[in-house]
């Protein structure tokens, strides 16, 4: 059997170019495997060879998605691969979005099969699970070995054009594409069996998981913004210098509430970011770039808004589970209501 040619897509970090300070690099390529590519190389053995690695900075990709994707696809096409492996991205949001976009682009524009891997809560999952196979991984790079073990056999099958099993069999996240099949038992019998298990408290598998229809009806607009009390909330991790509450840089377990009384401008001496998922340089230089206290103070003075609420709330969105973020936001929401806040500006990085 002819050896399968693989191109591997990575971000700047996994491609060993650099951390957040290099997140703005444009796409580049190297021959052969890099970083996690070594683990894939080991697992592929003689069946496939990683002929090249294409890398791009996460910020560059997300800020210039069209330009970046076009350049990456050109590079990938030049190597004429049989399959493209992206990531895995674990729970890195921007990396996940990039991996999903690249894999989808490879499939749809180059007509070459592609695969990626992510943690189920990565925003890239919701955006791309219908268009590409996304293997379910742990939320951090400690899950690399498990991810490789699932991605390699699936990649080989896709490259060879073999039939792909169900999401449960192959370990990818259900694509949300509904496909008919003839089951062994008729529907009524399946319903009786499911009910017996459900009544006994035993595990059972629904044939159609309810979609997340969780949408909140928009609240009415603020009637008179010049009288409104406005609060600032951020998931960009802005905290007083020294991070007094020790909010984690990733998978935050808490949020902070900080007093803005008498503060007209956030500066490098007094504020910084605790967020570990983006280049902190610019926020550390001037935290107003994430949390615009300076302008809102001007608006307050000019009478454009009633007032800026005394406290701001901050947490780190990076890799934080949806359930946790929900919990913090619920608590924050209660306090905001108690403080008589009329409107909220929430900034994200």
């Amino acid at each position: 059997m002819k050896q399968i040619k693989v191109v591997h897509y990575l971000n700047q970090f996994f491609a060993q170019i650099g951390g957040e300070e290099k997140a703005d690099i444009p796409p580049e390529s190297k021959s052969g495997p890099v970083g996690p590519g070594m683990a894939f190389k080991g697992a592929f053995g003689d069946a496939a060879e990683i002929v090249a690695t294409v890398a791009c900075g996460d910020s560059y990709f997300n800020e210039n998605p069209d330009v970046a994707l076009a350049a990456i696809l050109d590079m990938i096409a030049s190597f004429e691969p049989d399959i493209v492996v992206c990531g895995p991205a674990f729970n890195a949001g921007r990396y996940g979005v990039a991996c999903g976009a690249v894999a989808t682009g490879v499939r749809e524009k180059l007509n070459i099969p592609a695969i990626t891997g992510m943690y189920v809560e990565n925003p890239g999952v919701d955006l791309y699970k219908q268009s590409v196979h996304i293997v379910s991984t742990k939320d951090n790079a400690a899950g690399m070995r498990d991810a490789v073990a699932l991605m390699v056999p699936l990649a080989l099958k896709l490259a060879r054009g073999e039939e792909i099993g169900t999401s449960a069999e192959e370990g990818y996240i259900p694509m949300g594409i509904r496909k008919n099949f003839f089951d062994k038992k008729r529907g009524s019998r399946r319903a009786v069996d499911m009910l017996l298990k459900k009544m006994a408290g035993e595990p059972y598998e629904t044939e159609f998981p309810m979609p997340d229809f969780d949408r909140v009806v928009p609240n009415p607009a603020v009637k008179d913004i010049s009288k409104a009390k406005i609060a600032l909330v951020t998931s960009g991790g802005i905290v007083p210098k020294g991070n007094p509450d020790r909010i984690e840089s990733s998978s935050a377990s808490k949020y902070g509430k900080y007093d803005l009384e008498g503060i007209r401008d956030l500066d490098a001496q007094t504020y910084e970011t605790a967020h570990g998922g983006y280049d902190p340089v610019y926020a550390n230089e001037d935290a107003d770039r994430v949390l615009p206290v300076d302008i809102l103070r001007e608006f307050e003075k000019e009478g454009k808004i009633g007032s800026l609420s005394r406290y701001f709330y901050s947490t780190v969105g990076n890799g934080t589970a949806v359930a946790s973020a929900k919990k913090y936001a619920r608590a924050i929401g209660e306090e905001l209501v108690a403080d008589g806040v009329d409107a909220v500006i929430l900034t994200s990085t």
Partner: peptide
């Protein structure tokens, strides 16, 4: 579409057809 076929996706669970 399959919906033209009498009884194809019956919701009493008459058939073995399912989707995933």
């Amino acid at each position: 579409e399959l919906q033209v076929i009498t009884g194809a996706t019956n919701e009493l669970g008459f058939n073995t057809l399912s989707a995933r």
